[in-house]
Amino acid sequence: MGNENGFTMQFEKSLIELEKKIEEIRVFSSEKNIDMSEEIQRLQAKADVLKERIYRNLTPLQKVQVARHPKRPTFLEYVELIFDDFIELHGDRLFKDDPALVGGLASLNGIPVTVLGQQKGRDTKENIARNFGSPHPEGYRKAMRLMKQAERFGRPVITLVDVAGAYPGIEAEERGQGEAVAHSIMAMAGLKTPIIVVITGEGGSGGALAIAVGDRILMLEHAYYSVITPEGCASILWKDANEAPKAAEVLRLTAENLKEMKVIDEIIPEPLGGIHRDKVAGAKLLKEALVRNLQEILEVPGQDLLKLRYDKFKKIGAYS
């Protein structure tokens, strides 16, 4: 992933350089007490145009890179910015507590909810502690436990999905990673309480779907959601991971593609240049969407909810 401070995506290199230059001039002008506001304004306008041009024309693989950006908000940052009174609840009651999947109680605009999602780290140290946000089976079993708890007390469930994939390792297989993913999918399909899912960053295959069955599926503008990574697809298809740009195109994994295929319900816009450039503004947009969707779902009579959720997924697919 590279060093988080020096992380630069190739396609916005010119923008980053310009932003750096503006910052340098700012520091210089305040240190030397010289008015350079005209120059700063001129460069800022140039940067805005550049940002607009780059971010309005992202290729699918560039979006995947934005979705993976180390500065993109993590689960706990979203919780901090969007919810009140969060209390984290730990453990699956079976084996252990998985730090790669976090959940608990929180209040969304005064409505008590259960919120959970994969937790990536913000730096290398955190990432190692969080296993880069890739859960083991106990993570998904904790998610299930918290969702069942929410059902019992009539709380809606909100999940924030951001995962490269469920962890592929020896212990994960020993403890039934496939079983845990499947069981969680089944539990969500039958959960008698409203569920809102947001794909916030990476929607990496089964490890994402395990917490992504719900009544509303929302997705941030630059998130992706796919059955396989573009790199994985490229190495299978063209025996060459460098063909990832082509694979990302073919897989149709952007929010726009998925909305067309009716896999997601709504695209939540990000601040220009990606949510990592303005977390507060981005979280505000997400909160607005969450509150609105929750209010709508809470109007649906309980007995219709599961039927509608069933039909929603039953309809997805293409055949003749």
């Binding site: 499947a182 999918i185 089944m186 399909a189 039958g190 295959s205 089964g206 779907l209 069955v213 959601y225 796919s226 059955v227 396989i228 697809c233 299978i236 298809l237 073919v250 897989l251 149709r252 994994l253 998925l258 295929m261 896999v263 959720r309 069933y310 997924f313 039953k314 997805i316 697919g317 293409a318």
Partner: peptide, 20 residues
């Protein structure tokens, strides 16, 4: 899951599980 149908294949996991 079948790579050639992308996300639609992934969604079949949900479809079969809920039917089960």
């Amino acid at each position: 899951a079948r790579m050639q149908e992308g996300i639609l294949s992934l969604m079949q996991m949900a479809k079969t599980c809920q039917a089960r």
